[in-house]
Amino acid sequence: MSAEHGEPLTATSYITHHLTNFKVGSGFWTFHLDTLIVSGLIGLAVFVSLAVIANRATSGVPKGWQNFFEMVLSFVNQQVKDTYHGNNPLIAPLAITIFIWVFSMNAMDLVPVDFLPWAAQHATGNEHLPFKFVPTTDPNLTFAMSITVFVIMIFLNFKVKGFGGFMHEVLTVPFGAKLAPVNLLFRIIEDVAKPISLSLRLFGNMYAGEMVFILIGLVGIWQLPLALPWELFHILIITLQAFVFMMLTIVYMSMASESH
């Protein structure tokens, strides 16, 4: 809690401050720079290191990071194999990207709530600068991911079933050709619900978790014994949410690739 600025620091202003994004632009063309920068830097760091590790990977005895990431990636790949029975080279990399990226961004939640905002305020010299450093608490990010997944899903539908096959499925399942409009409506609701639930689940969990951290941050010195159990518990949520996002994506892809 940086208490030395002009206006009186109340619990409300502390919370609001922590839940405000670092914005640039106006109207629709507003960019949340904190989300964009943090998620981009985390992604670049993780995926470029992974590319370097993969580039150096040997088929001999795997060591260190190669061993670790082989384990993670085989785990993800096993989920893909168990659930997705098609043969699309995009699915495994998509699932891996989602799991690793979401996990790393969620893990930002474990950094103490005031640490990165303080660093950003000092780096910019603006001590009122809002800085929301857990990118997955920004619905823009979760929606961006789920909409991308949705687009790939629709694309797969067309690719696997063909235009005719997909249209036939949309219009005849589940009630048969006579109730085509109802089928179409059901299908639209079903498919639109997928990205919405996907993104809101991740956003909601991380936002709520972050909120608890902020509230814990309010209680002064007593936050230490409180923050520790919540952090430990949060490790579970972080992993679980990354896993759920990945798993549901695989399931949606598998549904898109199989006829009903």
């Binding site: 960019f31 992604g43 823009n140 961006a144 909409i147």
Partner: peptide
């Protein structure tokens, strides 16, 4: 807002790197 578009680009880049 437009952050959505930026995040989609990030996401696409990372999928591409992974793939």
């Amino acid at each position: 807002n437009a952050t959505l578009i930026g995040q989609m680009i990030w996401f696409a880049i990372f999928i591409w790197i992974t793939m």
